[in-house]
């Protein structure tokens, strides 16, 4: 009778190899590689009850940059620099907001207030999340992917309804 595993015989790996070679393409088709990044917010959204009085808000606004996200584009209030509007480059959809122009405004605002770290981002009710993230990208950093400079690294989210300029006076 012949020995089942004769000494010195090599293990026949051909079937194993064949199976693996078939499984790998199937797994490669099914797999998806996604890198996840994140924007960090350390301040809770301000609500109307916690909003400062108009007088205090006016004093704070001297060095506060506010970016309102409207259905028609961006509205930027930068303290002493007054107010600028950045309309959409096409009928307003998340990809048609002019993030590059906003980034240019943020660079000049950062040059005026180099020590300010916060920027107020105030979206209106119907603004989609993709647009908010686009604004975060535009206000927090500038430059190409290789060389990036921080602008306002601590964005604060405020409801757009609370960020409208108050008509007169305060409590």
């Amino acid at each position: 009778m012949r020995a089942r595993n004769p000494v010195g015989a090599e293990l026949d790996l051909t079937p194993v190899l064949s199976t693996i070679v078939h499984i790998i393409p199937i797994a490669l088709i099914a797999v998806r590689f996604v890198t996840l990044h994140e924007h960090r917010l350390d301040s809770p959204p301000l609500v109307a009850e916690e909003a400062p009085s108009q007088q205090l808000a006016d004093e704070q606004d001297k060095e506060r940059v506010v970016v309102r996200i409207l259905a028609t584009g961006f509205e930027v209030r930068g303290g002493d620099a007054g107010e600028s509007t950045v309309p959409c480059v096409a009928p307003c959809a998340p990809e048609n907001y002019d993030y590059e122009a906003l980034n240019v405004l943020m660079v000049s605002a950062h040059a005026r207030y180099p020590n300010v770290r916060q920027v107020v981002v105030a979206p209106d009710a119907g603004i989609p999340y993709q647009t908010i993230i686009g604004v975060f990208d535009a206000v927090t950093e500038t430059g190409s992917s290789g060389v990036r400079k921080p602008l306002f690294p601590e964005p604060v989210l405020v409801d757009g309804a609370d960020a409208r300029p108050a008509p007169t006076g305060g409590p």
């Binding site: 996604v34 890198t35 996840l36 990044h37 994140e38 924007h39 960090r40 917010l41 350390d42 301040s43 809770p44 959204p45 609500v47 993230i133 975060f136 992917s145 989210l157």
Partner: peptide
Amino acid sequence: LESASQAGFPRYRFVVAGE
């Protein structure tokens, strides 16, 4: 976000898909 803040989580991380 307001709900998370009221529950006791005042800090957030917005996860986005990188390039």
